[in-house]
Computed example of a mutant assay.
Amino acid sequence: MNPPPALPDLIHADTRPVPPRLGDGSAWALGRCWLWCGNKHTWVLWLGPASSAGHHAPFYVCEPCLDRLHHTIIDYGEAMLDAPTDAAGVRVSLYIGADDPPRPGPITYRRGRHRRPRTQLGRLWHRFLTGREAPPAV
């Protein structure tokens, strides 16, 4: 039988190195990250409440995962600026709701220069934006 995981050592928290962004007024705490780093125990930032299937929890991420999330959000914003348009001139969304109507007519792709995406998800969006990957049908 494995021993239970140790709780964060808060006794010596004032002697531990603090994250560079600690002085920005954000809610940093010692604990486990919820994202891509493998749940390491470090300084984590509370991003807000998370919910799934009626369950709620505080959502914490470490600084490297926060940077990755930040770059993904930037990639999404820039992708939507370059989004192709449908026959009605409406920008094609990167996400389609279950109740969304079918897109009218062909999709028109922009011929402008696209900034190189920062993240893997941004690279997938870029393939869609440039027409190298067909958008999913509704």
Rank of each mutant, 00 (worst) to 15 (best):
R91T: 08
L94Y: 10
R111Q: 12
G122A: 10
P106Q: 09
A88R: 14
R103W: 08
E78L: 11
A83N: 05
D67R: 01
L69W: 03
R118F: 12
P101G: 02
I96P: 01
D86Q: 09
D82M: 10
Y76W: 15
A87T: 12
A79R: 00
R103E: 03
V92C: 07
Y109E: 01
H114T: 13
R111W: 02
R116M: 04
G122F: 01
M80D: 02
G122Y: 00
G105D: 14
A98L: 15
P84Y: 09
R116E: 08
A88V: 15
P117N: 12
D86P: 03
R68M: 11
L121A: 04
R113T: 07
R115H: 15
A79G: 14
I74S: 00
A88E: 14
R113K: 12
G122N: 03
R68G: 06
D86E: 09
P104S: 09
P117F: 06
L81D: 15
I107K: 00
Y109M: 06
Y76I: 10
P84G: 04
S93L: 13
Y95Q: 10
T85N: 04
G89V: 05
V90K: 14
G97E: 03
A98N: 09
Q120E: 15
H70S: 11
V90M: 09
R118T: 00
D86V: 12
T119S: 06
D67Q: 07
V90S: 11
L69D: 00
H114Y: 15
A87W: 08
P106T: 13
D82T: 11
G77Q: 06
R68I: 11
T108L: 04
I74K: 01
T85W: 02
R111E: 03
T72W: 08
P84F: 06
M80L: 13
D75H: 05
T85I: 12
P117I: 11
D86S: 02
L81H: 14
R115I: 12
L94T: 15
Y109C: 02
D86N: 12
D100F: 04
L81N: 11
P117C: 10
A79S: 15
G97D: 12
T119R: 06
Y95N: 08
M80P: 00
R68F: 07
E78P: 03
R110K: 08
R118K: 14
R115N: 15
L81V: 12
L69A: 07
P104Q: 15
L94S: 13
A79C: 12
T108K: 04
H71Y: 12
P101D: 02
G112I: 10
M80F: 04
A87L: 11
R68Y: 05
L81W: 11
P104E: 13
D67N: 05
R110C: 06
A79Q: 12
D67V: 08
A87V: 06
R110V: 02
V90L: 13
D100S: 10
H71G: 03
P102T: 06
I96D: 01
R113F: 09
Y76P: 06
H71Q: 14
P106N: 07
